[in-house]
Design a protein around this nucleic acid. Structure first.
Length: 509
RNA sequence: GAGUCCCUAGCUCAAUGGCAGAGCAGUGGCCUUUUAAGCCAACGGUUCAGGGUUCGAAUCCCUGGGGACUCACCA
């Protein structure tokens, strides 16, 4: 039933809570006080009681005999369950540290205080309580409440306590309800936070410094993708949200910051599916005087170290597969990988027509692509990638699809580049960075030609970046790792929306 | 952008062409160690929206909205 006032439409349940709110205010009590008396979190209270029990054991008296000297705590949290039993009521509160049980006895707190609990509190409200800890007959550590107060009234009901919030759309649109009622969801985001923390610790420990580069850029670059475009009024010019951090981080390498990294959002104006969100998080790091083999060692050491930190092991379970992340990881050339899965040698079929013919000849199902490089990438995605469950460095990519990577000394058609695949998902991308400004300019020009041929995701010529490189850039290794993808891997989730707190959804009309 | 499936009470779910229902939550009552507390009672619906078919539509059809998955683009 919907109740309508001049200002709101709300449910009958909300109307009931508003009635209680009015009742509290009518009694001269502030339902939203600013000050909170709180000595312990839920977890700290439990730990304090266990510590007290341990001390007692040495002295002699049982906890029941010594109850009068049990720890006195002031706790606060959200009321998740209220279980009245006549003259005694049990409640469970939840704070960021966990849950704790409260016991209210009518003969202990008095008739009026006991009645007030039933009259004005609902599941979802915040409550603060003081009292001594004890264990119930069932052994649960519980606060014997001496006094309590309302910390904040909630006006909308929480989802059902047993099943939690199931509806996917509601879980994404109202993530706070998901976090409150689904412990799994909460754990995913704690793990994700742990991954980023562990990554920072690892890179800091290796002497990398964390930097911040522009998200709002006059020209996008550093990856092959369509950008989000916007307009900056003060300068009267078009701006882009970055699609990668790469070109700015390399400017820092040129500036003599030899080991830099950035963890931040990139934005790509592309599709939306279980592995893509238009706004996603990437770690990029650049290491002067290193090459792509150094980056491979860095990558496998870092990912294994992160997995150890957040899951306690380097061997993880993902979608029923056991994946071993301990180094060293398999290294497979792109050519050998595609040859093994399709029988096509991309070193033989080195132009678009020849490669198309070979694909047709074998009856392979791949979508048509406008350039040779994109077609090679398509073969990788269709036939090789699904086989790459265990962590694999696929190395030596065609120059045409790697415009920022250094050519291999013995074969200018290829670059010193690798992509990381784990659980059949692309998780990282790295190369020995191109530091020859003249070659870099040529690559940009070649990109323009590919764009003319129909490739919409080529990289624009960035004169300011070339200017920087003209001043001299040291040999450098660079790596990009997808934080969302890594989080999916380490939390065993197949949808990127499960590891992004607020995934992109269509706005409700 | 295309295809398939989904949308019912605050939440989790029933009802498949024939009286829209249950559990939880909420309301009233009983209950001093429960923890998915229990018992009794009453209450709670624009079945996503709009249109159509039909004696009759939550159910079938069409249009629109939102979501999930698959495909295409992408990391």
């Amino acid at each position: 039933m919907t109740v309508t006032t001049d200002d709101f439409d709300f449910s009958e349940l909300t109307a009931e809570r508003l009635r209680k709110l009015d009742m509290v205010r009518g009694q001269g009590v502030d339902p939203y006080p600013a000050q909170v008396e709180r000595s312990h979190t839920a977890a700290e209270a439990a730990a304090a009681y266990i510590g007290w029990e341990a001390e007692l054991a040495a002295d002699g008296p049982t906890p029941a005999e010594a109850a009068h000297s049990a720890p006195l705590v002031a706790v606060g949290g959200r009321l998740m369950s209220l279980r009245p039993h006549g003259k005694m009521t049990f409640a469970t509160i939840q704070d960021g540290s966990g849950t704790l049980q409260l016991a209210f006895r009518k003969d202990h707190i008095g008739d009026a205080a006991y009645a007030w609990l039933q009259e004005v509190f609902d599941r979802g409200d915040f409550i603060g309580a003081r009292g001594r800890l004890f264990r119930t007959r069932m052994g649960e550590i519980t606060v014997q409440v001496d006094e309590y107060r309302m910390l904040a009234k909630s006006l909308n009901p929480l989802p059902e306590k047993w099943h939690g919030l199931k509806d996917t759309e509601a879980r994404y649109r109202q993530r706070y309800l998901d976090l409150l009622t689904n412990p799994d969801a909460r754990q995913v985001f704690l793990t994700r936070s742990g991954i980023v923390r562990s990554m920072r610790r690892f890179l800091d420990g290796r002497g990398f410094i964390e930097v911040e580069t522009p998200i709002l850029q006059p020209l996008y670059g550093g990856a092959s993708a369509r950008p989000f475009k916007t307009f900056y009024n003060a300068l009267g010019q078009d701006m882009y949200l970055r699609i990668a951090d790469e070109l700015y981080l390399k400017r820092l390498i040129i500036g003599g910051l030899d080991k830099v990294y950035e963890i931040g959002k990139d934005f790509r104006n592309e599709g939306l599916d279980t592995t893509h969100n238009p706004e996603f998080t990437q770690m990029e790091c650049y290491w002067a005087y290193a090459d792509y083999t150094d980056m491979m060692r860095l990558t496998e050491d870092m990912v294994a170290s992160i997995a150890q930190d957040v899951t306690g092991a380097t061997s993880i379970s993902f979608q029923g597969e056991t994946i071993e992340l301990a180094p060293p990881w398999r290294r497979l050339s792109l050519r050998d990988g595609i040859l093994a899965q399709t029988g096509i040698d991309i070193y033989v079929h080195t132009d678009l027509d020849s490669l198309r013919a070979a694909i047709r000849e074998r009856g392979l199902q791949v979508s048509p692509k406008p350039t040779w490089g994109q077609l090679v990438d398509e073969l990788l995605g269709e036939y090789l990638q699904p086989t790459l469950i265990q962590p694999t460095f696929v190395i030596d990519y065609p120059t045409e699809i790697s415009p920022l990577a250094k050519r291999k000394a013995d074969d200018p058609r290829l670059t010193e580049r690798f992509e990381v695949f784990i659980g059949a998902r692309e998780t990282g991308n790295a190369f020995s960075e191109l530091n020859d400004p003249l070659d870099q300019r040529e690559r940009f020009v070649a990109q323009a030609a590919l764009r003319a041929a129909g490739d919409e995701e080529t990289q624009p010529l960035d004169e300011d970046f070339i200017l920087a490189m003209m001043h001299g850039m040291p040999p450098t290794g660079g790596l990009g790792l997808g934080i969302d993808r890594l989080s999916m891997l380490l939390t065993d989730r197949t949808s990127i929306r499960e590891v992004i707190l607020f995934p992109q959804l269509r706005t409700l009309r």
